[in-house]
Every structure is written in structure tokens, then in C-alpha cells.
């Protein structure tokens, strides 16, 4: 693993099922993640993905790339444009810095509205030091 290395993009179809299943798997019962009518009353056009699901997908993207020995040390994400049903989020990533066998990966998840998520993942990959 080297600074500048790019991760292959990962396309995530943002289905209603993913939004609801992700919210419930993370035990997040906020109505905006499963009830379109209440989401609209709160100013959103439809239900939207919760931050725990986004966080989980960002972590998955990085461990998918580095394999099952990769150990996540930290994930920091900021949300922008919401992930609504029917959209597609494309995750892209780039290794920003490498220190021994630990790397900081910058991840962006873009949907049809703009950047849904920007963030960094710190990951240790035993034996991958440069």
C-alpha cells in the first residue's frame, strides 16, 4: 500500500430496502429513515440513509479493498447531500498517507445530488507496510 493508491470505485444502489434495513440493523428507529410521510413533514423529500449505515458502508469499502486481515482503527465521516431511494452512491478512495502498516484513506461517496459523504478511514494492514 502506497500513498496515492486509488481504491476501485464501489457503486451502492440506494434502495428503500437498504435505507430501512440499514437503519434497523443499526437500531436507529428515527422516523425519517423509514416513514416517507413523516420525513416530508420534517423537510426532506423522502426517507434518507442514516449516518450509521453510511459509516458502515465506508468501513466496508475500505476492508473490501484491503481484505479480511485489515483492522479498522478509525472512521470519520461528514454527511452532505442525503442518500434518498432511487439514487446511486459511488464510493471512491485514495490512500493519503502510510505510516508503517497503517494507512489513512480519504473516501468520498457521491450521489446524484453531490457528495453524500466525505471522510477518512484509518486502517492497519499487517504486513502491508512500505
Amino acid at each position: 500500500m502506497r500513498a496515492g493508491e486509488r481504491l476501485a470505485p464501489l457503486e451502492i444502489p440506494v434502495t428503500r430496502t437498504l435505507i430501512v434495513a440499514g437503519a434497523l440493523a443499526s437500531r436507529d428507529y428515527q422516523d425519517v429513515h423509514h416513514d416517507p410521510e413523516l420525513a416530508r413533514q420534517k423537510g426532506a423529500p423522502d426517507v434518507f440513509m442514516n449516518i450509521l449505515t453510511t459509516n458502515g458502508l465506508v468501513g466496508r469499502y475500505v476492508t473490501d479493498h484491503f481484505g479480511p486481515t485489515a483492522v479498522l482503527r478509525g472512521v470519520a465521516v461528514r454527511l452532505g447531500a442525503p442518500n434518498h431511494p432511487g439514487d446511486t452512491m459511488v464510493l471512491t478512495g485514495r490512500v493519503e498517507e502510510v505510516d508503517g502498516d497503517t494507512a489513512v484513506v480519504r473516501v468520498v461517496g457521491a450521489n446524484g445530488l453531490g457528495d453524500h459523504v466525505t471522510g477518512t478511514v484509518t486502517v492497519t494492514v499487517p504486513g502491508a507496510g512500505s
Binding site: 425519517v32 420534517k42 423537510g43 449516518i51 459509516n55 483492522v71 479498522l72 472512521v75 465521516v77 454527511l79
Partner: peptide, 13 residues
């Protein structure tokens, strides 16, 4: 301010 949305999450493991 009855509505809530999460904007940032930082986790260290």
C-alpha cells in the same frame, strides 16, 4: 427544533 439529523460521526476503535 423538533427534527434531528446526524451530520458527522467520528469513531476510534
Amino acid at each position: 427544533c423538533t427534527a434531528v439529523v446526524a451530520t458527522d460521526c467520528e469513531q476510534g476503535y
